[in-house]
Amino acid sequence: MIRLDQVSFSYTDEQVSRPAVQDLSFTLEAGQMVVLLGPNGSGKSTLAWLIKGRLLPGKGKVIVDGLNTLDKNQRRQVQNLVGLVGPVPDHQFISNLVADDVAFGPQNLGLERAEINRRVDAALKMVSMEDYAQYPPYLLSGGQKQRVCLAGVLAMQPRYLILDEATSMLDPAGRQQVLEILAKLRQERKIGILLITQNLEEALLADRVAIMHQGRIAIDLPFRELAASPDLLKEYGMEEPPLLHMASLLKKHGLLPNHCFPDSLDQVVKALC
């Protein structure tokens, strides 16, 4: 389990100190998917880096499976347990060949070559990119690139996965592909997933939705509870996704039962017919 206890962190230079995260407490369990929403500058990426052990809390502590990121020896293990995928795929490629790029992480773990090859094959298959192993990454589409980045992290077999706006630069089809992979990872590998996004529609698959505001977790609720409170969303500058807005209108007019939270248009049609 990932646990943040009363964590604070500020970006400082010689003149100013800007608090990015303040007294933040948060948990993520293995096999759980939490969507983290919030406007730019609310501290979402800082939170991701604190969990990954790339930033250290000024106050409080970050514990990942019992390992404290403040401990230098334990931090290295934490960094291997937590995989982080960033928003721009082009900035995450290290090698000139998809297979070599996916192998980069396992190579750093010092694994046997046969094991590395096995992990590379499995990771590429997981993201349906096995046919592109010998391609240069820059020849791939945006969605394919992001899937390769995901494979690069999965090949390290992390227990937790953080996607920091990893779907923000993708078209709807590419975004859908990544979300389907995440659902599969969660079910089959019991990986704990923290999906940082600006898009509430991606929260449909999540167990919980957290909203960050000015460096704090302002809301941490199961998705259904949040979806049932559109005013709460508006309060934090979030727009209700069109599908949920339609569902709430249908409920208001008694056309849809109150317990129904559709995650696709097909479900709405089914409920109506």
């Binding site: 291997n80 900035h91 490629f93 192998a103 980069f104 992480g105 396992p106 190579q107 750093n108 070559r113």
Partner: peptide, 26 residues
């Protein structure tokens, strides 16, 4: 900027100067 991004990506995937890495083609 790209160099900085690349360094971040490498560190995110466990690279550190001086570590023993497995040779892929050996």
């Amino acid at each position: 900027q790209r160099a900085e991004d690349l360094a971040e990506a490498m560190e995110n995937r466990g690279y550190q100067a001086g570590i023993t890495r497995t040779r892929l083609y050996a």
